[in-house]
Amino acid sequence: MIEASQISKSVTTSEGELVILNDVSLSVGGGDSLAITGASGSGKSTLLGILAGLDLPTSGSVSLNGQVLTDMDEEGRARVRAANVGFVFQSFQLLPGLSALENVMMPLELHGSRDAEQRAREFLQRVGLQERLRHYPKQLSGGEQQRVAIARAFASEPRVLFADEPTGNLDTATGSRVIDLLFELNREQGTTLILVTHESRLARRCSAQMALQAGRVMAPATLVAADALAR
């Protein structure tokens, strides 16, 4: 489903070249889940951005569902994202002016879905927010907001779901409820899940884990790493 081969990312700063990712390769099959772990600044989010086609590596190649993202321009990558990708963010990224229902409808409307409202209602019901359809984000708690975000992500039935620290802004109990929901929907829809987290508890629920340190993949002895995944 997703293949990354020898991707590196570096940026030029006033103090010289800064390497963020160094020679990372991985492969994740359809319906599998991969947790990318590591400390702050280890390059997790950068890797997620590149895998999702939001950013380009300095070198190496990434393909998603057989399409080579690194050979495409932004418009091409946008098309691939539109057809395959959903997101869940640490800061929820709900639009403050839109109700919960409208937030979930938004990607469906963007994709031209005719029954956007119906599906949005269904998914909000799935995440237990059927009573909160008309509420605005500021009227919802953090956990509720993330559930809206999960409903939004799954409503368009993506092949791959990218989750960036989905519990980062939530307390432990709320976080674990949100994670249960995430994995449940993931299982039901057979979605491939790429998850960035620094929580080992969460990482262990994934079928594979990969630890990053200073932009490099750590020894595969402790973790299921690129080679092991590339079956």
Binding site: A78, R79, A82, A83, G86, Q93, L95, L110
Partner: peptide
């Protein structure tokens, strides 16, 4: 800005 970034991450092109 955030709304546009979100829409683009969901696959909306610049032209869209």
């Amino acid at each position: 800005v955030d709304q546009v970034a979100l829409m683009k991450s969901l696959g909306a092109s610049a032209w869209r």
